[in-house]
Measured scan of single mutants.
Amino acid sequence: VTVDIKGMEYHFDNPEEAKKFAERMAKELGGELKVENGTLKVE
Rank of each mutant, 00 (worst) to 15 (best):
V1L: 12
V1Q: 06
V1K: 06
V1D: 02
V1M: 12
V1H: 09
V1Y: 14
T2R: 10
T2Q: 05
V3K: 01
V3Y: 02
V3D: 01
D4E: 14
D4N: 14
D4S: 15
D4T: 15
I5L: 06
K6E: 13
G7E: 01
G7H: 03
G7C: 10
G7T: 02
G7A: 01
M8S: 08
M8G: 02
M8C: 13
E9I: 15
E9A: 12
E9L: 15
E9R: 15
E9H: 14
E9S: 13
E9K: 15
Y10I: 05
Y10Q: 01
Y10S: 01
H11M: 08
H11Y: 14
F12L: 01
F12E: 00
F12N: 00
D13V: 09
D13T: 11
D13N: 11
D13I: 09
D13H: 08
N14E: 05
N14W: 03
N14P: 00
N14K: 05
P15Q: 10
E16M: 10
E16V: 10
E16K: 06
E16D: 12
E16H: 09
E16S: 08
E17S: 07
E17G: 02
E17K: 05
E17D: 12
E17Y: 04
E17L: 06
A18I: 00
A18C: 05
A18N: 00
K19M: 14
K19G: 03
K19H: 11
K19S: 07
K19A: 09
K20D: 09
K20N: 10
K20W: 09
F21R: 00
F21M: 01
F21L: 01
F21C: 02
F21I: 00
A22C: 08
A22V: 06
E23C: 13
E23T: 06
E23K: 07
E23R: 05
R24D: 09
R24F: 13
R24N: 08
R24A: 12
M25H: 03
M25P: 01
M25T: 03
M25G: 01
M25V: 07
M25D: 01
A26I: 09
A26E: 04
A26C: 12
A26L: 09
A26G: 03
A26T: 06
A26P: 00
E28Y: 12
E28P: 02
E28M: 12
E28A: 10
E28C: 15
E28G: 03
L29I: 08
L29D: 03
G30R: 09
G30W: 05
G30S: 08
G30K: 09
G30P: 03
G30I: 04
G30E: 07
G31P: 03
G31I: 11
G31C: 13
E32T: 15
E32Q: 14
E32W: 15
E32G: 07
E32M: 13
L33C: 13
L33D: 03
L33P: 03
L33T: 05
L33M: 09
K34M: 09
K34G: 05
V35T: 10
V35S: 09
V35M: 12
E36H: 10
E36N: 09
E36P: 03
N37E: 08
N37G: 11
N37Q: 07
N37H: 08
N37R: 05
N37L: 08
G38P: 03
G38Y: 02
T39F: 11
L40S: 03
L40R: 02
L40I: 14
L40Y: 13
K41M: 09
K41H: 09
K41N: 04
K41L: 09
K41Y: 11
K41C: 09
V42Q: 03
V42S: 04
E43V: 15
E43K: 11
E43C: 15
E43I: 15
